[in-house]
Write a protein that binds this DNA or RNA. Structure first.
Lengths: 256, 256
DNA sequence: AGTCCCCACTTGTATAGACAACTGAACATA
DNA sequence: TATGTTCAGTTGTCTATACAAGTGGGGACT
């Protein structure tokens, strides 16, 4: 079926090479939904790796949502469009580009201020501690999509105001100047109506339907870095969510 | 620190016992955010298991979001309220109860119909194939929260109309009568305004802000079982989402 | 003081082998 | 025909070991 494709001296982990290879077969559509993926045994023999390594590859494939395993039966292609499988934290720029639309943003304000209650709690800082406040209108293909108000503790990046240029991605700026990489974020969405001010900025009628988001973004170690309030046009935005019951081998599940 | 707590003959996997024990320490708050979790070595020695088993326990802990590992340094408590960490697919009844509110629902209609375009596509059935349509108003603490319209292919559970009683959980009914357990779901939310009809059922003013959801629920093998259109009151509902950049060892990440 | 090297500790990857538990089909029995 | 058994194939768990690779500290040297 497949020839030996492993490169043992490339520095790329074997299980990862295997995972990528299987992923490619699935992604390209040559393996259809429900089809059995090669068994741990088979992978191990064919590629000359240990069963545990093959297993690791399959497990990581399952974690991505591209496949699922059944005890005693095998591992199967899951038949999901796994591009949509887990939402990544993308910066606005990245997200727009990944959809093929041209991102722009207009800075309304960039100033320092004192944290209010909600901001302080979200960012785990003291009430009144200094934060940068970056107020922007975000455009997609030259037409307004949302109004965003970002809060970042001054303490974490004291010279942000010098480093940050209006055209650049904030996340990129944080990464390159302070080594801070956003790893995950919590978002809360509410359905609401546009205020007069928001309606003007978004170019929609007053009381048009909008999403009101609050979002807290964290580093890998769980430290909050950014708190954002934003208002999205309801007619240009959908929120996609994957809900899952899965967790690592809940004993309860087996007993049901 | 902790005594030996493993039961090697209980049938419960060792790594799972360990994971649960660590989870308890974190959950209870005795281990604060950022604290180092015992190393693989230490767990292995103290509990008399192999390092790979200890590792398995730690890894599953990380998958739950309760901790994170750093190559060369150790594994640390993540400092997240991990109840909120991943949204589970809960049935309406479960979800309400888990928030301590009393769920009720009023059935408006329960009939058979032919699938329209959107339904057919979501459920992977033919256009016009028979589906059950269950139209309900959902109440929380006796006041309306949403209007829901569920579609389920007749073919999957031909006697659902007999088996299903208005008071019971639909998911429970599917599980007990047909062995179908919902494993995950995709949801899309839009911000919108209530129609006259919806406003009446939800007891809100016309044009009040609402969420419009479409949701497709799947079995473990990726088979779609249920497609739901629902309208939630904007003033009683928030959508919580965790976005994550993590995936199983993306090579790119290391190089950044 | 600073710089480099080495060492101990950590997680990451990989191997080889063992047994348990589950599935489904082929087979034997009543 | 129906039922139970056996068996091969599969995933799940666990052990023991080895080496690679990243981190951080202490110590030696400059």
């Amino acid at each position: 079926m497949w020839p030996a494709f492993l490169d043992r001296y490339s520095g790329v982990p074997l299980y990862y090479q295997i995972q990528q290879h299987l992923l490619e077969e699935i992604r390209s559509g040559s393996w259809k939904a429900g089809r059995a993926v090669p068994s741990e045994q088979e992978i191990a023999q064919r590629l000359g790796v240990s069963r545990m390594t093959a297993r690791h590859a399959l497990k990581s494939l399952c974690n991505l949502g591209a496949a699922y395993s059944q005890h005693g039966k095998g591992t199967f292609v899951s038949g999901l469009k796994f591009e949509k499988n887990f939402r990544q934290v993308l910066s606005f720029s990245e997200e727009m580009r990944s959809r093929g639309t041209r991102p722009q943003s207009k800075v309304l304000q960039f100033r320092q201020a004192e944290s209010d209650n909600e901001v302080a709690e979200a960012l785990h800082i003291g009430l009144g501690e200094k934060v940068f406040v970056l107020h922007r209108v975000r455009l997609a293909d030259s037409s307004p999509l949302c109004v965003e108000c970002t809060h970042i503790p001054v303490r974490l990046c004291p010279e942000l105001q010098k480093k940050f240029k209006p055209r650049m991605s904030l996340y990129k700026c944080l990464l390159e100047n302070y080594g801070m990489q956003i790893d995950f974020a919590d978002e809360v969405a509410e359905a609401s109506l546009a205020t007069a001010e928001e309606a003007r900025l978004l170019r929609v009628p007053k009381k048009a339907p909008v999403f009101r988001f609050t979002r807290t973004a964290y580093l890998r170690n769980g430290k909050p870095v950014e708190f954002v309030r934003s208002v999205y046009r309801g007619d240009r935005c959908k929120v996609v969510n994957r809900l899952s019951r899965r967790m690592e081998f809940s004993g309860e599940r087996a007993k049901l």
